[in-house]
Structure formats: structure tokens, C-alpha cells
Design a protein around this nucleic acid. Structure first.
Lengths: 208, 208
DNA sequence: GTCGCGATTTGAACATCGTTCACTGATCCC
DNA sequence: GGGATCAGTGAACGATGTTCAAATCGCGAC
């Protein structure tokens, strides 16, 4: 064996990440062993380490693809006009996505790098991109010169939606099923935005 | 060796959980190995398995103590009178707690049991207790016969606060430091509650 | 055709992990 | 004093992530 890769090295990388995603979705982090992954890719464990530094890097690549998929889904959505509807739409996409890939989603949230290793930059960048999308749809609700308030609101809303989704996926919200998580999200977005309007009803009354 | 325990078996249990908490706080989940834990307790690895079924059970006991500590802190707080202040107070206790034990807190959120094993009942019960405390302080803001709305609001607020705390501890909220997480929490609670009042300004105007 | 070289893949080996269990020896009861 | 008991032991097992010298293949030169 050891024939030169018929697929280029990038293709091999893709195959490994594919296989890793399948294993993670089926068996969680504990199921992803170097030997199990190698067997699924039909190569030896050593080959994995020619392409990735370690298993953590494989997991990170799965996470990256997952985040990209979410970004694409948000980008593909038919844009709603009213800011409230647009934010609600994003929140529901977020919710649906987390429940569509519950295992992968949990791994994305749970996966902690060993020791001092910080979250990689591309990870933070992808999260910042999502946050920016919320912020962009929120800006019309605020007067010019209140971008700081819009940025704050975006972070609060996004963190809140995230909290509902993660607790819901982990089944930790007592008496809250996947179904009713949607109700929570609607209530959060509508009530929070109503609270914003109630603070400055005179500025942009038409934006409600 | 093998002298009969000078400490009762419960004391040994406590010593193990103590040591495990210290290791987890210092080195995270990866640092908690059976041998390292045994060395810190000054016993052999096998002894651990006379007291606990496996290392997961040790971690669960650390988590249980952590949740109890949070509950106690909330119970000890001088109760605020106005519902808004009471909820805000709880949220800030929650935030401070998560940042006081960031590593243990992350483990509490991240720790996923292997395979089909569900979150143990006592865990869910402790979370439900926290949720109930929020709910109790929220009820005065709603008219009689609107307990369902109060329960919904409690879940939304608690999940939202939780989302801010977890993203903040994990350092995933772009441009949001531990300091400013407090600002996010204040904004969430105040704006959300204002949104509730804006919906029914006629009912309990004095509760603002 | 074949030879050789560089790139690629291999899989045995290593340290360490969680966990088990036959054994040890201190303690209690008689 | 002498079993009986049982908390505590630690060597051993299988599996883990990772490494690296060796094996193997693809391909261009001649």
C-alpha cells in the first residue's frame, strides 16, 4: 500500500473531515478516536497526522464547516424588511440549525481546547460575522449616533437567543421542549425590542 | 497500608471531591486523571473506585456542590423589594459566580455524559430550583391568572442571562469583556422587563 | 524497460489513560 | 491470641493519542 494519493492532499483533508463529522454526529466526541476515524477513511492512523496536527484540529475543522453552513443559511434567507422580522428570522434560523445538528452543535459549544490554548481566530471571526449580521439588521431601529446602543442590543439579543438554544438542545430548560423553544425566542425578541421602543418612542415610531 | 479508614467513608468522599475540585479549577477536565487525583488524596487509584463508580461521578459531585454554592449565595442575598431589582440582583449573582469560578463553571456547562446517559435528575432539579427562584420574583409583575406568562418570562430571562454568562466566560462575545458583561445583563433585564410593562401598562404601573 | 528518488503511507511502539480485581494487612470480636 | 472482615492496594489490561523509522508507490530520466 502507500500508493500516492489519487485524490490530492486537499481531497484527503475533506474526506477526513467528512468522516469525522459523521462519527461526531453519531457518537459524539468520545466516539472520535484516531483509529476509528482512520478506519472510516480507509487509511492508517499515522496518515491523519500527515494532514492534521492532532485530533483537535480535525474537530475544529468540523466546527468551522458547521459555522459556515449556518452563515450560508442566514445569507440565503429571503431578507425580511422590518428590523423586528429580520432579527426574528435570524433567531429562528439559529434555533432550527441547532436542533437540526444537536450533537455537532453541542460539540461546537462544549469543545474546550486544552490548557492555555485560546479559541482560534477564525472561530472568533466567524462568530463575529454572525453578530455583525444581527447588528446590521438592528441599526435601523436606532437613531443615527446611537450605533453603540445598537451594538449593545445586538450582543444582548444574540447571547439571549444563544442561551435559549443551548439550554434547549441540552434539554436543561425545565418544561421547555424543542417545540416551545421557538415560543421563548419569539417572546425574547419581541419583548426586548418592545422594551427598546418604549425607551425612545418618539424617535423612530414607524420602525415598530 | 490498608489500615481501616481513620476518617469515615463519607469523609473520604469529601476529600476526594475537594481534591477533584482543586484539580479541575487549576487544570480543567484534562488534568483530572485517576492517578493525579489519587496522589492528591494520598491514596491509590483503586481506592477511588471503592467510593465512586468512575471519574464521571466524581465530576458530577463537584458540579453538584458548585450548584449548591450558587443556590446558597442567592438564598443569602438580602432580598430586594422591587421585582426588577430582585431579578437584576439574581442575574448579577449568577454573573459574578460564573466569573469567580470560570473553569468549574465551564465544566458544568460543557460536561457531557457519554452516550445515551442523560443529565442526572438531581442536576435538573437544582437547575429547576434556580429557575423557580427567578419565577417567584417575577410573579408580582404579572396580573393574577397570568402565571403562565410569568413562567415564560422567567425562562426567557434566565436563559438570556445564562447565554450572556456562558459566552462571556468562554470569551466568545466579541468586544465584550467580563466587565461589560454586567452592562449586557443590566440591559437585558431592564429592557426585557420594560418590554413586558409596555405590553400591559395599565395593569401594575407601580411595579416599574 | 528499468532504475532511482522523493513523496507518501504505514503500523509497530511508547507513554498514559480509566478501570478491574486478586491480594494485603490492620482492625474488631470472641 | 486468633480468625474473620474489609478498606485499601497496586500490578495488570485494553484502549487511547501520537511518533517515526521503515516500507511502498508514482514518476521522470535514461
Amino acid at each position: 500500500m502507500a500508493r500516492r494519493s489519487k485524490h490530492g492532499p486537499d481531497a484527503l483533508k475533506g474526506m477526513i473531515v467528512d468522516a469525522a463529522e459523521a462519527i461526531l454526529a453519531a457518537d459524539g466526541l468520545d466516539g472520535l478516536t484516531a483509529r476509528a476515524l482512520a478506519e472510516r477513511v480507509a487509511c492508517s492512523p499515522g496518515t491523519l497526522y500527515n494532514v492534521f496536527a492532532n485530533l483537535d484540529e480535525v474537530v475544529l475543522n468540523v466546527e468551522a464547516r458547521l459555522l459556515d453552513r449556518l452563515s450560508a443559511r442566514i445569507a440565503d434567507a429571503r431578507p425580511e424588511v422590518r428590523p423586528r422580522d429580520a432579527v426574528l428570522q435570524m433567531a429562528e434560523i439559529y434555533l432550527d440549525f441547532s436542533h437540526e445538528f444537536p450533537r455537532l452543535w453541542s460539540i461546537l459549544l462544549e469543545h474546550a481546547l486544552p490548557a492555555g490554548q485560546a479559541t482560534p481566530d477564525w472561530h472568533r471571526a466567524r462568530l463575529a460575522e454572525l453578530l455583525g449580521a444581527v447588528e446590521a439588521r438592528l441599526v435601523p431601529m436606532f437613531a443615527p449616533g446611537q450605533q453603540a446602543e445598537a451594538a449593545l442590543a445586538a450582543r444582548v439579543l444574540w447571547a439571549g437567543v444563544h442561551g435559549i438554544c443551548s439550554l434547549s438542545v441540552a434539554d436543561k430548560l425545565t418544561n421547555v421542549t424543542a417545540q416551545s423553544a421557538r415560543v421563548l425566542i419569539r417572546d425574547l425578541v419581541e419583548t426586548y425590542l418592545r422594551g427598546i421602543e418604549a425607551r425612545r418612542p418618539q424617535l423612530l415610531p414607524g420602525s415598530a
